[in-house]
Write a protein that binds this DNA or RNA. Structure first.
Lengths: 191, 191, 191, 191
DNA sequence: AATGAATGAGCTTTCATTCAT
DNA sequence: CATGAATGAAAGCTCATTCAT
């Protein structure tokens, strides 16, 4: 369900992503976006009714792109533990190499720019992860805990570690990731 | 090291917190803050050099206030496990009853307002928690894991659960909190 | 001397008339006119060099149309008094059923759109009326007054009454019109 | 019931009157008004919420000013015929020397800028004239005709003559005015 | 110290017009 | 001939900040 975007729309979204990642929403006038995208200022408004709508569209595009990266390599044949590990590692490395995307997404996750429509899409995009977790609970690979607790035990540490690695001096080497995954599995795994 | 604030400063910060919580950074002009605080627009500039500095000062005040609430009841005599449980529960209930504060802090946390100065203050304010965790590792209550992993296993789930409870339909009752704490302890506790 | 207009030109003028009648000059972008007329935005510029010229052309068309309605039934055999009465009644009923036209013309009449060219056309279109009046003066049906005074005594009340009937709650029934015509004739008629 | 205006408001309204008289509404950006008035662009918005509101306020001010000029010298002791003559002459000479005002008022009389509020004020300002006319009907100086007809017979010719004198080559000398007033009185006067 | 009217740079957005297709 | 996507100048308006009182 990924919409086809014209070349111009792509250019506009790319420019917006980069500029907002660097300078924030305030620091990014529409004129700057237009210039960076190589289009006229008015052209943006053919595609997006307002700056707000542009941001929302960008949010959806980036969220989808990240999702695709995180799920890369996933098949239902993987054990849930392996699947979680795969996604965990994918997410960490996505964050490492796609820092512009994450700087933008983090900025907008709690912003008042995100409208209800977009929030709904966000939740929809979470459903892939929920499915994996639920499979784990059904299969007995994951202990019988409330879904929100299991989600929190996986995505919470992931978010903390990746943002810590971006802000501070933590290096997320393989050993540390293994330790984190092991800890997570102790908390939610059976046995 | 809590600075003494004049009555006017308090009024200004209170007004800022509430307005930003409701309407976001963009939606909150200085004039609105002045009006809500019952002071002249120019008066704010006696105390804060710019809007940015005002926001930063507010961040420090709110972070300190939250910190105080989270640490409420903590003594060094508590076992680390009990201390973490106390802080966890305190944090959850703080988020529940001080939602304006958290709406502001969440917004601020990833905003381009954050300067290096503020980043330093943020880490300073984390140091109390770090101390507790380090005590746990030394004592042998917590397994010998890298500090960032332990921090991630505690604060990650906490952040996820509380923001989930604010956005969606998860109710953080005592049972669910107990389950989460148990899961956390399985992941980082000895034995 | 009515110009032949293509079907497209008619559609464009029709759309312009209706939109400007509803939303005013400002509220009517060329794109809206194009859409309502069912033509491309660029097509309008094949026929009219600019928006201003389009408006002027519309003025000429509408003024001619109204003129034709007002003069309907007129022959030189009518006495001047009857001719004035006919035109007066025709004008009143035209205003009643062609309100879009009049809303446009009233707006236009005092607008800065009017250029010298248009002003000349306007006077030309008045000449039919002037002819009738002058005949009346020659014949002795109308008192020997300066032409502008006679014109003012006929068209002034007409304009006032019809705009009053559009704005307020005056109903222009036959009796009232008869009274007005009688009053006019007392003022300019012989005896 | 004339509102007190600050010096700045006066300057803004004066600038608006002159510029719109010269260049029309479209040709007059807020920035030009601000410059001519010698104030900052933002200052206008302290006094008027929008350009539209500014125009409406100007309309009310000018309409009141004209009204005062037209009624100058009027007392209830004058016969209605003399009163109408006075107002008629006052109006003609006002139009002659205050052409900026009239160019503005004519432009806006039929524009969509005029809001309901302003329309109500306009009618209120007409009430002085209505009073005089009604007195004339009661006294028996004016024939027993419907009010709209009498109004139309006075204000219609007045409007036609003054706009004709502005647009074309009619000179409104005393003789012509006397002839017009005589004609009016033949139409509405008793005997 | 406190005020709040005044500022004006800079924003988002519109729309008459063009021109490659 | 016709189109309508693209343009970009220019508009209305906001708001962080200043400064005379």
């Amino acid at each position: 369900m990924v919409l086809e975007l014209t070349e111009k729309q792509e250019a506009i979204l790319d420019a917006t992503l980069e500029l907002i990642g660097e300078r924030g929403f305030h620091g990014t006038p529409m004129s700057a976006i237009a210039e960076k995208a190589g289009v006229g200022a008015g052209t943006i408004y053919r595609y997006y009714e307002s700056k707000e709508e542009l941001i929302n569209a960008l949010y959806v595009r980036e969220k989808q792109a990240i999702n695709a990266q995180v799920l890369k390599g996933y098949t239902e044949e993987l054990s849930v533990r392996d699947a979680v590990g795969l996604m965990f590692r994918n997410a960490i490395s996505a964050r490492a190499c796609e820092s512009a995307r994450f700087r933008f997404l983090d900025q907008y996750y709690n912003s008042p720019f995100i409208g209800d429509e977009t929030r709904r899409i966000r939740e929809q995009l979470m459903s892939d992860y929920v499915d994996v977790i639920e499979r784990g609970i059904c299969d007995g690979e994951i202990r019988d805990l409330p879904l929100p607790v299991v989600m929190a035990m996986i995505f919470g540490p992931l978010a903390q570690l990746s943002s810590a690695s971006q802000l501070k001096d933590v290096t997320l080497d393989d050993e540390l990731i293994d330790q984190a995954l092991d800890a997570i599995w102790r908390s939610i795994g059976c046995e």
